[in-house]
Deep mutational scan, measured.
Amino acid sequence: IRLYEREDYRGQMIEFTEDCSCLQDRFRFNEIHSLNVLEGSWVLYELSNYRGRQYLLMPGDYRRYQDWGATNARVGSLRRV
């Protein structure tokens, strides 16, 4: 999964292949505005340590956080399923 700091895949990008319990420890931002799921399925959590609202993401492109059903861009952790 590739996470981007801004909409439309702009700004700083980070790629994950494994679970991350605290996004801010690995990426200086806690807001993700766009992403690409390259393979497999992922769950994004609004808070760190896999807490808060959850969003199940299938392979595909998500140009804005609204595309995955979120009401804001906050992402605290993520897990591959």
Rank of each mutant, 00 (worst) to 15 (best):
I1G: 02
I1W: 00
R2L: 03
L3A: 05
Y4N: 11
Y4P: 01
E5Q: 09
R6W: 08
E7R: 07
E7S: 13
E7T: 14
D8L: 11
D8S: 08
D8N: 02
Y9T: 15
Y9I: 14
Y9L: 07
Y9N: 15
Y9A: 11
Y9Q: 13
R10T: 08
R10M: 08
R10L: 06
R10A: 05
R10G: 09
R10D: 04
G11A: 11
G11T: 00
G11D: 13
G11Y: 00
G11F: 00
Q12F: 03
Q12N: 14
Q12E: 05
Q12A: 07
Q12Y: 10
Q12W: 03
Q12K: 12
Q12D: 08
Q12R: 07
Q12C: 02
M13W: 04
M13A: 13
M13S: 12
M13D: 11
M13P: 14
I14R: 12
I14G: 05
I14M: 13
I14N: 12
I14S: 14
I14E: 11
E15L: 08
E15N: 15
E15S: 05
E15A: 06
F16R: 13
F16S: 11
F16H: 12
F16I: 06
F16A: 05
F16Q: 11
T17N: 09
T17H: 02
T17S: 08
T17E: 05
E18I: 06
E18K: 05
E18G: 05
E18S: 12
D19K: 04
D19P: 09
D19F: 10
C20T: 10
C20N: 12
C20V: 06
S21W: 05
S21G: 07
S21D: 12
S21L: 07
C22G: 10
C22H: 06
C22E: 12
C22D: 13
C22Y: 09
C22F: 14
L23I: 05
L23M: 15
L23K: 08
L23W: 02
L23F: 08
L23H: 00
Q24T: 06
Q24L: 09
Q24Y: 07
D25I: 07
D25E: 13
D25W: 05
R26K: 10
R26T: 07
R26Y: 14
R26H: 10
R26F: 02
R26G: 08
R26A: 08
F27N: 05
F27K: 09
F27Q: 10
R28F: 03
R28V: 15
R28I: 11
R28E: 03
R28K: 15
F29I: 05
F29D: 10
F29Q: 12
F29G: 09
F29C: 11
F29M: 01
N30Y: 05
N30R: 11
N30K: 14
N30M: 07
N30L: 04
N30H: 06
N30W: 07
E31G: 11
E31A: 10
E31L: 12
E31R: 10
E31H: 12
I32F: 09
I32R: 06
I32H: 01
I32E: 03
I32V: 14
H33P: 13
H33C: 09
H33N: 06
S34C: 09
S34R: 01
S34T: 00
S34E: 00
S34M: 01
S34A: 14
L35A: 11
L35M: 07
N36D: 07
N36C: 07
N36F: 14
N36W: 13
N36H: 06
V37M: 02
V37Q: 02
L38D: 13
L38Q: 09
L38R: 11
L38N: 15
L38V: 07
E39G: 13
E39Q: 06
E39H: 15
E39D: 07
G40K: 03
G40S: 08
G40D: 10
G40Q: 07
S41M: 02
W42T: 01
W42E: 00
W42H: 02
W42Q: 00
W42S: 00
W42Y: 15
W42F: 05
V43A: 06
V43Y: 02
V43S: 08
V43F: 04
V43N: 03
V43R: 10
V43C: 15
V43T: 05
L44W: 01
L44G: 08
L44H: 01
L44I: 12
Y45G: 01
Y45K: 00
Y45N: 01
Y45W: 06
Y45A: 02
E46G: 02
E46W: 00
E46H: 03
E46F: 03
L47F: 10
L47D: 15
L47G: 08
L47H: 06
L47E: 04
L47W: 12
S48E: 15
S48F: 04
S48N: 10
S48D: 15
N49D: 06
N49M: 10
N49Y: 08
Y50V: 00
Y50G: 02
Y50I: 01
Y50D: 01
Y50R: 03
R51G: 13
R51I: 02
R51A: 08
G52W: 01
G52P: 01
G52T: 00
G52K: 00
G52L: 01
G52F: 01
R53H: 13
R53T: 10
R53I: 03
R53K: 11
Q54P: 07
Q54W: 01
Q54R: 06
Q54F: 04
Q54G: 03
Y55F: 07
Y55A: 11
Y55D: 02
Y55I: 15
L56R: 13
L56Q: 07
L56D: 15
L56Y: 03
L56H: 14
L56P: 14
L56F: 14
L56I: 14
L56T: 14
L57E: 00
L57A: 06
L57Q: 03
L57P: 11
L57Y: 04
L57D: 00
L57G: 04
L57W: 01
M58E: 12
M58A: 11
M58W: 04
M58R: 08
M58K: 13
M58Q: 13
M58Y: 15
M58G: 14
P59I: 03
P59H: 07
G60S: 13
G60M: 04
G60I: 04
G60Y: 03
D61T: 08
D61L: 05
D61Y: 14
Y62R: 15
Y62S: 10
Y62N: 04
Y62P: 00
Y62Q: 02
R63M: 14
R63H: 15
R63E: 13
R63A: 11
R64V: 07
R64S: 08
R64N: 15
Y65F: 03
Y65P: 12
Y65R: 12
Y65I: 12
Q66H: 14
Q66S: 10
Q66P: 09
Q66E: 08
Q66W: 10
D67P: 03
D67Y: 04
D67W: 06
D67V: 07
D67E: 12
D67N: 15
D67G: 09
W68T: 15
W68G: 04
W68P: 06
W68R: 14
G69F: 09
G69L: 14
G69T: 10
G69A: 11
G69H: 11
G69D: 05
A70P: 12
A70F: 12
A70L: 12
A70C: 13
A70D: 15
A70V: 12
T71I: 12
T71M: 04
T71C: 10
T71H: 12
N72V: 13
N72Q: 11
N72T: 11
A73P: 03
A73Y: 10
A73K: 15
A73Q: 13
R74M: 02
R74N: 14
R74W: 08
R74K: 04
R74F: 08
V75D: 00
V75G: 08
V75E: 00
V75A: 09
V75M: 08
V75H: 01
V75L: 06
V75I: 03
V75Y: 09
V75K: 01
G76D: 06
G76T: 05
G76A: 10
G76F: 01
G76N: 04
S77V: 00
S77E: 00
S77C: 02
S77L: 00
S77T: 00
S77W: 00
L78T: 03
L78F: 15
L78K: 00
L78G: 01
L78Y: 01
R79M: 13
R79D: 01
R79P: 00
R79I: 03
R79Y: 04
R79V: 05
R80S: 12
